[in-house]
Amino acid sequence: MNENDKIELLKDILFSDEHEFEKKIAQRVTFLEETIQKPTKLAEKVNPLITDQINDFKNSIPETLGPTITETLKKQIKINKDAVVEALYPIMGKMVKKYVAQEMRLLSEKMNSQLSFLSLGKTKFKSFFTGKKKEGLVFESLNSAKIEQVLLIEKDSGILKASYAKTKTIDEEMVSGMLTAIKSFVEDAFNAKNQNLELIEYELYQIHLESFATHYVAIVISGNFSLGAKNKLQDIIFNFYNSFMAMNVDLVFQTKNSQNSITPVNKATIEKELLKHFKNAKL
């Protein structure tokens, strides 16, 4: 062993800890280099940080930007009143028009019932001329609307999600498809965007259709489906929507392409809710 070898040996003994440390630093540097140079590895480290930042930013929006946005909107609305009215008119105008028309018809129905003392004489008069019994005519007027069947249908595909029926008749899945086809055809044919087919009548029955974002409810009604009955039915449907449908993401939003896995509400649960809301409903 010469002098140099001895020095090397001595170095090894004296600096063994430093060697280990140096080795670890070299490994760390290599790892960092790899992380920086390879996009996938860098993304693994950086993405969670970015996501956290975005989430923090999102959460802070109401506090930090909220007042500014509100103030800006107020100013813009004041400056561009006409443009706002033009933008909102197609939506609001339609809603107001529909509401006023419905309320006017309701008022007219109420006035008719207020003048019911006249209807007694009318019934006698009608009975005299038609030869029908008075009881029969009164029964006819008392023939109130009844819910026969309720179908909850996917708007695009026409697939039946669930149903409630007093008595099962023809295949409900085919009926759902056909109703959807009719609905699509009519809505396409009139080429009026954001308008929905609301009623189909056939002899003794009427089918009321209430559309939501991704689904619609079809309700088969028998009897005299007056405007008052329609109002009550809409209240029942909206109550069903608010207390059940709105609580289930897959019944309110388009979840087909969603990145988060959403468990759809099962048929039995929907049918239970339909039964609860519609079975004993009085129109």
Partner: peptide, 8 residues
């Protein structure tokens, strides 16, 4: 009619 294709 495109609406017939929806949701297929």
């Amino acid at each position: 009619r495109k609406s017939y294709l929806l949701g297929a």
